[in-house]
Amino acid sequence: MNAPVLEPALRHTTLDHLDWLESEAIYILREVAGQCSNPALLFSGGKDSIVLLRLAEKAFRPGRFPFPLLHIDTGHNYSEVIDFRDARACELNERLIVRSVESSMARGTVRLKSADESRNKHQSVTLLEAIEEFGFDACIGGARRDEEKARAKERIFSFRDEFGGWDPKNQRPELWNLFNARVHKGENIRAFPISNWTELDVWQYIAREGLALPSIYFAHVRPVIRKGGLLQPVTELTPARDGDVVEQLRVRFRTVGDITCTAPVESDADTVHKIIAETATSTITERGATRLDDHASEAAMEQRKKEGYF
């Protein structure tokens, strides 16, 4: 029964892979809108959430988005990204809610172990506070399953208990396209419309849609220090210490998160097409190259997610 020659049985109606992913994401966004009474879309100004906004435009225009945009700001973001965030929300004429980790620190709900501790993991506290403040029953995020091991089994509609916790053993089976976003009061759903996308898919989509991005995604010269195989940017928050060798390198960011835990990579790619070429031949995963916080332990992400991290 093994035919030596195979005829590709593909009809002209088959969607190409970006169309398929886009269509699935639109479907997921509309399910959130159809099933949840008070959702929010997490928008940071990063590339994955920029893609989410384009998908939301495709899903809901000419109507308004059936949810506000929400950013949990660590206060340690690059100003280019924050400016981009505000400009984009304004351009879309959608409501942007910003809640900051610094406010949680002022309230005393976030206590840093030391002044220079990364605030990244403390975003969870501020996010849960925002969820409670606004009564959100769902948060839409741009996480992808290819980012990290602990995410490979993440559901597209991921259930979080009253404490915002993610219990890997207590997730709802997800069959066909039948998503279950039902929650009791206090619980909520994290919905991930681009779960099935890879980093390359995201870049290909950005190119196809001609999406604007914060400038730091593209190659630029920046002072950095080489540390443990990663490049640490020299900034006011992360100044050079005695003995550090500061180099002026041409770099770009593959992810833009908290300044204290996001590292750029050496690159000459100053256009989306050059980034795609680099991504297609890259030998280091996105998180491996850029996330200073995931290096701590293999189970780092899983642990943070259990605590309510996105």
Binding site: R145, D146, K149, A150, A152, K153, P168, K169, T198, A299
Partner: peptide, 29 residues
């Protein structure tokens, strides 16, 4: 394909995991 901490402890796979690859001609899930 070795995923979550709980599984690593038990040495078995207890849940569905999704993996991705592309040949340039087709994307696979």
């Amino acid at each position: 394909t070795d995923g979550l901490q709980a599984e690593r402890e038990q040495g078995i796979t207890i849940d569905v995991a999704y993996r991705y690859f592309s040949t340039g001609r087709r994307k696979y899930i």
